[in-house]
Structure formats: structure tokens, C-alpha cells
Computed example of a mutant assay.
Amino acid sequence: MDHAKKGMTLFELLIVMIIVGIVYSIGLFAIKKEKAVSSSIKASELKSALTALDHSKKIRLICDNSCHECRVLDTRDSVVASIRLSSDGPLQRYGFDRLGELRPLEKTVTNIDNKFSQECFEFTLYPDGTSSPLILKDNASYYLYTPLQGEKPFITDSAETLRLHLFDELRYPLKSDRYYVQQP
């Protein structure tokens, strides 16, 4: 008798499904790895780019001394991604002193695997969407990231507008510290 084969056996079907699953998982891993390698973003898109990364715990963005080449670290201090910040000029980290004057800040000291180094800045994003405060300035604009703000920063070209946005002088007068005011 000549039996004509009309379909696949259960064993053959199982082998095909295993091969397809292996090929799929290899392809998916390669795509995820490619996404995490490197990207270029604008300073105004910093928090939204970090939010797009898959994270269930806090992640840290640490930028080198040029403030343009950055790496994203997870809680184990493993590099998850590399990011290049593009801007209209050199980036500088700024901060307010206790009297409300905007000043350029020195490099920050970071600790990665018990090795200390100086970097331009560090920006931390927590799982609930809050972040560490950060003020960056390029040639034309200030970018203000506050902890409870959304993904978009407050952007202005005026230091005075930035100060008024952060401080309410009616409740917290910055220039009236009695301890430091010189007595006549």
C-alpha cells in the first residue's frame, strides 16, 4: 500500500514551532540591543527620552565633561544606553545660590562602582516620573527640569524669567537675609 502523506505530524509541528520561537527570540534580542546602543536627542527632550526607556526602578543619566556624551545607568550601574545631547552651543549646568542668583556650577562628582569621577552633570529619573532638579544652558536658552514637572522642561532665554518661575518673592524674599545684611 502506498500511503500519501496529507499533513505534518505532531512531532514535525513541534519542531517547526521551536525553530520559529528561537529565531523570533534572537531577532527580538537584536532589536532591543540595537535600540539601547546610542541615540541623539535635544536638551529639551531629555526627560521624555529617558521616560521612553523601559525602567522599573530609578535610572541615572551621567554626562561627561563636555556635557554632550551621556550614558544611562540602571540601579546596578550597568550602562543601558548612550545618548548624545545636541544643542545650539556648549552646554553648561547652572544653579541658584541661596540668595537667588543664577550661577554656573562646577562639575559634579559621581560614584560608579566605588570609583569617583567628575562629570558635567547627573540627572536621575525615578519610576513614578519624578526627577532630580536640573538647569542646563546653551548659547540661547535655559532648560529647567524640576522634580514634579512633566516631561517637557521650562525653557526661557532670560535668567530673570527663570528665577521668577522658581521663586515666589512675596513668600520667600531672596535678598533679605538678615544675617548677611551689613548693619550701617
Rank of each mutant, 00 (worst) to 15 (best):
D2T: 00
D2A: 12
H3Q: 07
K6A: 04
G7Y: 01
G7W: 01
M8D: 06
L10P: 01
I18T: 13
V23I: 14
V23T: 05
S25N: 06
S25R: 06
G27A: 11
K32P: 02
K33F: 05
E34S: 13
S39T: 07
I41G: 06
K42P: 00
E45C: 08
L46A: 08
K47Q: 08
L50P: 01
A52G: 09
A52I: 05
L53R: 02
D54S: 14
K58Y: 11
I62M: 08
D64Y: 08
S66L: 04
H68R: 10
T75G: 10
V80Q: 11
R84F: 13
P90Y: 01
L91T: 05
L91H: 09
Q92Y: 10
E101W: 07
E101K: 12
P104R: 11
L105E: 14
E106W: 06
T108A: 13
V109N: 10
N114Q: 13
F116E: 14
S117D: 15
S117F: 13
Q118A: 15
Q118N: 14
E119M: 15
P127E: 11
P127D: 11
S131M: 04
S131E: 09
P133S: 14
I135G: 06
L136E: 02
L136K: 01
K137W: 01
Y142N: 05
L148F: 06
Q149H: 02
G150C: 08
E151L: 15
T156P: 09
D157C: 00
L162Y: 02
L166Q: 04
L166R: 01
F167D: 07
D168F: 02
K175D: 12
D177M: 05
R178Q: 04
V181R: 11
Q182D: 02
Q183F: 03
